[in-house]
Structures are given as C-alpha cells and as structure tokens.
Amino acid sequence: MANEELNSGNPKVDIEYRRRKSAEEMRYQVVSFAMMIFLTFVAFIAVGYDISGWFTIPFILVLAIIQVGFQLYYFMHMSHKGHEAPALFLYSGVFVAFITLLAFVTIIWW
C-alpha cells in the first residue's frame, strides 16, 4: 500500500509530505483540465473553419484520443501505482472496441 511506505514513525513529517504531494497532484489536475479545454477549443475551431474533411476528421479524432488520455491518466489516476489490473481491463475493452468499430465501418455496406 502506498500509505504504508509513507509511515516514517513521525506523523507530522508524513502529513507535511502528503500535503505537498496532494498539492502537487492538484497542480497536475488543473494543468490537465487546461489542456483538455484547449484541445476541445482546437477541435471545435477546426470544424468551425471548415477545412477539408480529409484533414479535419483524423485531426479531431487524434485530439479526442489525447484528451481521453488526460482524463484516464490524471483525472482517473491511471498514472498512479497499482493500476495494472485496471489498465488490463480497460485496454482489453479498447481492443474489442477497436475490432467492433473496424468491422462496422469497413465490412458493412449498403
């Protein structure tokens, strides 16, 4: 457990350390949020300016994937220790999701 590693025997030291740790963590969260807002703006502007769809569609998809990365790794703490099993579950889901999407957009036609 992360907590047990922190126990130095002196509770004051531990609390000071944790306070600093969580303040630092919060800064990362706010930076993530700013990045996510920025990526959203860029995506909406790219569509608003009506550049060629061949450029816009892959571009906004990449922005969405980066934004979801921030959400997963910072907001949902996947960058922390002890998230190996969650990563396995999530990426297994993503793998099946990818195959499903690939099938539906390529081998289905009308």
């Binding site: 969650p86 579950f89 999530l90 297994s92 889901g93 993503v94 099946v96 999701a97 990818f98 499903t100 999407l101 099938a103 539906f104 957009v105």
Partner: peptide, 15 residues
C-alpha cells in the same frame, strides 16, 4: 472491470 465492459458496450453503439 465494469468500465472495460462499458467501453465495449459504447463501442457497439458507436459502431
């Protein structure tokens, strides 16, 4: 584990 399943669920709807 549930969120992994939700990912698949939404993928089918997106597809």
């Amino acid at each position: 584990l549930f969120l992994g399943g939700e990912t698949v669920l939404f993928a089918t709807l997106f597809a």
